[in-house]
Every structure is written in C-alpha cells, then in structure tokens.
Computed example of a mutant assay.
Amino acid sequence: MNETEGTLAISAHPSPGGPVVLRLAGELDHHTGASLGRAVEDLLHGPGSGAGIVADLSRLYYCDSTGITAIITAHDRARAAGSAFCVAAPSPALAQLFRMTGLDQVLTFHPSVQDAVDALSSH
C-alpha cells in the first residue's frame, strides 16, 4: 500500500514475522489526517494484522491537533481490534509535543523503528 494525499505520504512495510511499519512522511494535519485512519483500517483488516503496527514518524515534520487526534484514533482502533500500536522515531519537536499533551502517558514511544519492531516482535 502506498498512499499520498496532500503533503502526507504513507507506506506500509511488513516486518518478517513481526509488525507492519507504517511510514508517515510530510504533514499530518486537518487535510491529511483521514488518510492515516484509512491506512490503519486497511492494515487491521489485512493479513498479519495481529502482529501490530509501528507508526514511523521519523519523516513527519508537521503535526497539528487534528494529526494528534488521528494518531490517538489509530491507536484506539488498533487496540479495539486486538492489535498493538506504537509510535517510533518522532523528531525532538514532536516528542516534546507528545509530552506536553500527555500522549507519552497514553501511547508507547520508541526511539527508533528497529526498537519498536523488536519490542512488538517479542510479544
């Protein structure tokens, strides 16, 4: 799956025997937030969805309140479907935003995609 909408590119990369890495590149905002929801729904209804989803934010350079809501919604949908969802490699600015909003208490964050894949693969 590859989807580009507005200034957000989303691509899914399955890990052998582990979670799917969902790479987000660009801006996650009111114009693009719905595309994250669609991508997560597609993954949750596809093969291997139980292995979990890693949201790779290493190439996400902008996230507004709608983007934050899209991430929370993706997390909640994955959990409701019995799948794990975590966030990996946020920029220092995004990591600070998540701490300031208290999302670091709700979502599981990993410093790198590999750390996240390893953590979800060990469960």
Rank of each mutant, 00 (worst) to 15 (best):
M1N: 15
M1L: 14
N2S: 13
N2T: 13
T4W: 13
T4K: 15
T4Q: 14
E5L: 12
E5S: 12
E5Y: 13
G6I: 01
T7E: 12
L8Y: 07
A9S: 14
A9F: 15
S11M: 11
H13Y: 12
P16W: 02
P16S: 08
G17I: 07
G17D: 00
V20F: 09
V20W: 06
V20Y: 06
V21M: 02
L22S: 06
L22F: 06
R23Y: 10
A25Q: 06
G26Y: 04
G26N: 03
D29A: 05
H30S: 09
H30I: 10
H31D: 04
H31M: 10
H31I: 11
T32H: 08
T32K: 00
T32S: 05
G33R: 10
G33F: 00
A34P: 09
S35L: 10
L36E: 04
G37N: 09
R38N: 15
A39L: 07
A39K: 06
E41G: 12
E41Y: 11
E41L: 15
L44H: 06
H45Y: 12
H45I: 10
G46I: 02
G46D: 09
G46E: 04
S49W: 15
G50D: 09
G50A: 13
A51S: 12
I53T: 03
I53W: 04
I53A: 02
A55H: 03
D56N: 00
L57D: 00
R59E: 15
R59F: 07
L60D: 01
Y62N: 03
D64V: 06
S65N: 05
G67D: 00
G67Q: 00
I68W: 11
T69I: 15
A70L: 05
I71V: 15
I72R: 08
T73W: 11
H75L: 08
R77V: 10
R77M: 14
R77A: 10
R77Q: 15
A81K: 05
A81S: 05
A81Y: 01
A84D: 03
A84Q: 07
F85T: 02
C86A: 04
V87M: 01
A88Q: 02
A88V: 01
P90L: 06
P90A: 05
S91E: 01
S91N: 01
A95T: 10
L97W: 10
F98A: 03
R99V: 10
R99K: 12
R99G: 02
M100E: 03
T101V: 11
D104L: 11
D104Y: 12
Q105F: 09
V106F: 10
L107R: 09
S112F: 09
S112E: 05
S112G: 07
S112Y: 08
S112T: 14
V113C: 04
Q114C: 08
A116G: 06
A116L: 04
V117S: 03
D118G: 11
D118I: 11
A119P: 00
S122A: 13
S122Y: 08
